Amino acid sequence: MAACEKLLVLYTGGTIGMQQSADGLAPASGFEARVRAQQSEEGQDQLPDWIFSELLPPIDSANMSQANWLAMVDAIVEGIEQHSCDGVLVLQGTDTLAYSAAALSFLLLGLPVPVVLTGAMLPAGTEGSDAWGNLFGAMRALHQGQASGVQVYFNGALMHGARVSKLQSDAFDAFTVLPRQRISPRAGQIPQAIDYRQARHPVNIAVLPFYPGIQAEHISALLGSGVQALLLECYGSGTGPSDNAALLTALETAHARGVVLAAISQCPQGHVEFGVYAAGSQLQAAGLVSAGGMTREAALGKLFSLLGAGLEPKEVEHWFNLDLCGERAD
């Protein structure tokens, strides 16, 4: 793990760089000058040299989309291949930071340099803000040397990019990695078809929780909307309304025509193990593939990366079942 000597700082917007507008806090450009001024004022040492790139327009992360993730990937690869950067720091808002970290974990498979994401709960310059601590802390962590892969730096902690979740909306330690059982074989190697050089395209993915009273018509309408994959948030260890024959038939029919069906647990510290209950076994028979202990963010990002690479449904299910970057196994 060599120390980062030249860092790409990729600014996408978010609270960390927001300024007051007539409608309240809003994303703002010009953040590079503010960062350099603050670095000079604090006399920050042990930081790598860095160059700045900004995705325009800067956005509130509530507006994050697949297109934004793909733009991030392009900017990151450009910084490494054209500007010889040996580390990347991505700045974005916290609302979808865990989703971005998970998506980039899979979109950047095989990338030879470390990528760290951070943001802030309060804008830079606000009294008591965590912005400069997170930003310069992440820079120092990269300068000290990190393994390749994606991580999140927040409140002094480095966390695995495909395992982290935001659990609090108003605290500096908003992000954490919950213990979730992760037992899955590790992929022997990352094939070229899904490494970071593979072009991706947007895909149609939906997420739906099971809940008491859910109807087959609800799922049929969603499956009939053109989705390529449906991520179902199941109860407990992967159960659902197994006495609803119409619902199970809707899932079976969609799976037969090539819709990828995946299951995660609604429990923050849960994992899917279909064979524990008959209700889970019936979902498996309908075509659902288990996400094991993956988070919603990781499962969604993984489906996007695999489907976006143009893989066939069976190939998607194959790679979804394997651990690609530490998301499914410790």
Rank of each mutant, 00 (worst) to 15 (best):
A279F: 00
A254Y: 09
Q228K: 13
A245N: 04
F274S: 00
G226E: 11
G275L: 06
Q266V: 02
G270D: 06
A262V: 10
V259I: 06
E273Y: 11
D243M: 13
D243W: 13
P212F: 03
L251T: 04
P268M: 07
T249G: 01
L247G: 01
E217M: 10
V276C: 06
N244L: 06
G213M: 08
A278H: 09
V227F: 09
Y277M: 06
G270C: 11
L223I: 10
S220L: 03
I264F: 07
G226I: 05
D243A: 13
S237K: 10
A246L: 13
V259C: 10
S220C: 05
S237I: 13
Y235I: 03
Q266G: 15
V276H: 05
Y235R: 01
A250W: 01
A256I: 07
H218V: 14
T249Y: 09
A263H: 00
A263K: 01
G240D: 00
V272L: 02
S281G: 14
V227E: 11
Q215F: 04
T249K: 14
Q266K: 13
Y235V: 03
I264W: 04
G238L: 07
A216N: 11
A254L: 08
L248H: 12
L230G: 12
T239L: 03
P212R: 12
G236K: 06
E233I: 14
F274W: 12
A262Y: 02
G224Y: 10
Y277K: 10
E273M: 10
H271T: 12
A246P: 08
E217D: 15
I264V: 14
Q266H: 13
N244C: 10
S225E: 08
A256W: 02
I264H: 05
S281A: 14
S242R: 01
G275P: 02
E252M: 12
L232M: 15
V260N: 06
S220R: 09
P212D: 12
L232I: 15
A263G: 01
Q215H: 07
A279Q: 12
A250K: 04
S242D: 11
G280I: 10
V227C: 02
S281T: 13
S281E: 15
